[in-house]
Write a protein that binds this DNA or RNA. Structure first.
Length: 621
DNA sequence: TTTAGGG
DNA sequence: CCCTAAA
């Protein structure tokens, strides 16, 4: 019998279903939307070739369809059906429906993108772990689908094709078009969707003529927003895409590893892992193992199993993404090399420190940024699983800061993302190994990793939320993605920041311009914020805060601490100090106008900082 | 194991 | 950043 392939279309917020079923399995309804995919009848010959259906056959099927009052125009499946589409595949040599596609879906508007942006950003950026969790779970929930959900784009851009295997077709196209569609089961942390859209735009730009893809992705994206479960595939892909971007993705080396088909693997490019990757992977692996062994020694039975099952997909995903040829391709390699965005350059001048310094600063930030995400990708996933307590929450609910998303998070996202593309220096993998002369002629290897601005901001934000001293908490919640930063690191950094902030008085702001050519200066606003937080959390005596040595700090800390003052208490207040307002504002801008600001977050930040500080400095400082 | 603090 | 003491 004929098998009519039904596809689901998620349209206007709901699935519409109709009893469009033939001999095949569950078929959902086709809705004739703005972007129909026309299924073309083909016959599958005995040898597997596809032969265009004859008119008679078409008539025949047409009648059948007519009986069911179904149009032959089916709408493209946007991927919600995920691997379930595979049900379309039949072994009979009977006319089948096959799709080609109109381009109308490229009509999707920017507004849609914005909508979805906002939507996704409502997910607490800092709750990335939970997002990972959820999407993992979602992935699991679609588990009954035999194929991985990996449709990023609808497939044929107006061309007819007799290719029957949609999955395959899409994959092919996707491979050619998209920047990333690999590691479908690994959990990247994608916090703001705007990055994804930027990503797409980037792709479009870089791919030149293939602009149709972008809207397609947006469509998927849009469709996803109200149907997380069904769209888990897309979400995943989007996340991956974003994740890729976060880690210096490059267009040329992202052959999707979405599925495990060996045939696909064979075609994938093979890459040699970098030294850094190997190092980091071994790190990750050792962590996994240690985690496993601990678990298995300490617990038995179900616990063990659950842990295993958690770890496993990750590993598989990694292996999978490497092309399957036994060669592992580290994310590290996905470095995108391109020039800085012009708006960055344009706005850089707003940096309070001054143009040249600002330029240096940004440059360094850019360079440094590129170093981070490389090895966080792996650990990130692991951490994510270990920090499932976070829940997605709307951004706007800022005031109840407890588990809310942090504006800074978003900023960091942008920052992390933005400069990444810029990175000219490429893989900085070898920079981490630094030999440090230890006084008496000894030279030891120091595992030094420069703190990026975004990390600093995250730290500051973390302190503001959880309180200084709750380093492990901050690490776990705010620094989940920075596996290489330990809670001790956070503490140390905070200590340094504190010192710096106290050294830098409103009177002598130029302090940053001193001979620190090599060290990236920390923006005054951040230091300001640090001191504010310190004051509020009584790490520093307010009266001394106006630019005094750190001398009495310790005593105050102890007194306050021992007095039992909950450090978490002041943090709500800390949120809306002037500097906090700056950060919040800039991140809000990025939230609201991602396509405008996500790529120049620091610029925005600095601009606002300049404006607000000039205002506050006069009236308050 | 986490935190604080010295080196 | 490392190390260690203390909790």
């Amino acid at each position: 019998m004929e098998t009519v392939v039904g596809v689901e279309r998620y349209d206007e917020g709901k699935f519409e279903e109709s009893g469009f079923e033939k001999s095949s399995s569950s078929l959902s309804s086709p809705k004739l939307g703005a972007d129909p995919v026309v299924y073309k009848l083909v016959r599958i010959e005995g040898d597997g070739r596809f032969v265009p259906a004859t008119d008679d056959e078409i008539m025949e099927v047409g009648n059948l369809l007519a009986d069911d009052k179904i149009e032959m125009h089916l709408v493209a499946d946007t991927g919600q059906t995920g691997g379930c589409i595979s049900s379309e595949r039949t072994s009979s040599g009977i006319p089948q429906l096959e799709n080609s596609e109109g381009l109308s879906q490229s009509e999707n508007t920017e507004a849609d993108a914005g909508k979805s942006n906002v939507h996704l950003e409502e997910n607490d950026p800092s709750s990335a772990p939970s997002m990972n969790e959820s999407h993992i779970n979602q992935s699991g929930s679609v588990g009954e689908c035999s194929n991985p959900p990996n449709e990023l784009v609808e497939a044929t851009f107006g061309r007819e094709t007799t290719v029957k295997d949609k999955q395959w077709l899409k994959r092919r196209i996707t491979m050619g078009l998209t920047n990333s569609c690999d590691v479908s089961t690994s959990s990247f942390v994608i916090k703001d969707n705007k990055l994804v859209n930027k990503d797409k735009e980037e792709n479009r730009n870089n791919l030149g003529s293939d602009s149709a893809k972008d809207p397609a992705v947006r469509t998927v994206n849009d469709n996803c927003k109200d149907s997380p479960i069904n769209c888990s595939g897309q979400i995943e892909n989007l996340q991956i895409a974003s994740g890729e971007r976060l880690r210096n993705s490059s267009i040329d080396d992202d052959f999707g590893a979405e599925d495990l088909n060996t045939e696909e693997r064979a075609a994938k490019r093979v890459r040699k892992p970098t030294r850094r990757y190997i190092e980091e992977l071994s790190e990750v692996e050792s962590k996994e193992h240690s985690g496993k062994s601990i678990a298995s020694t300490k617990n038995s039975g179900l616990r063990q199993i659950s842990i295993k099952s958690n770890v496993r997909p990750f590993k598989m995903a990694r292996m999978d993404s490497f092309g399957g040829s036994g060669v592992e391709v580290p994310y590290v390699c996905r470095v995108r090399r391109s020039r800085p965005r012009k708006n960055v350059m344009a706005l850089m001048g707003f940096h309070p420190i001054g143009m040249s310094v600002a330029a240096t600063l940004v440059k360094k930030a850019i360079v440094v940024h590129n170093t981070q995400p490389n090895n966080e990708s792996g650990d990130e996933a692991l951490k994510a699983r270990s920090a499932p307590e976070q829940i997605q929450q709307p951004v706007m609910a800022e005031p109840e800061k407890d588990k809310q998303s942090s504006p800074v998070d978003s900023i960091e996202q942008g920052q992390n993302v933005e400069p990444k593309h810029i990175d000219p220096s490429g893989d900085t993998s070898d920079e981490n190994v630094v030999t440090v002369p230890t006084g008496k002629g000894g030279i030891r290897r120091k595992h030094h990793r420069a703190w990026t601005l975004s990390e600093v901001m995250k730290l500051v934000e973390g302190v503001s939320r959880y309180g200084a001293g709750r380093w492990s908490e901050i690490k776990r919640l705010a620094f989940a993605s920075y596996s290489y930063r330990t809670s001790v690191d956070l503490k140390d950094k905070w200590r340094n920041l504190l010192k710096a902030s106290l050294a830098q008085t409103p009177q002598d702001k130029k302090i940053n311009s001193r001979k620190h050519a090599s060290a990236m200066p920390i923006p005054a606003a951040i230091l300001l914020r640090v001191r504010e937080l310190a004051e509020m959390q009584s790490q520093v005596s307010p009266n001394l805060s106006s630019g005094k040595p750190v001398a009495s700090t310790g005593r105050n800390v102890h007194e306050t601490r021992s007095s039992g003052t909950p450090l978490t208490e002041p943090r709500n207040n800390a949120t809306y100090t002037p500097v906090a307002l700056v950060t919040t504002s800039s991140s809000l801008l990025c939230f609201l106008f991602p396509h405008k600001y996500s790529l120049s977050l620091w610029s925005v930040f600095n601009l606002l900082q300049l404006l607000l500080r000039s205002a506050f400095t006069q009236s308050r400082l």
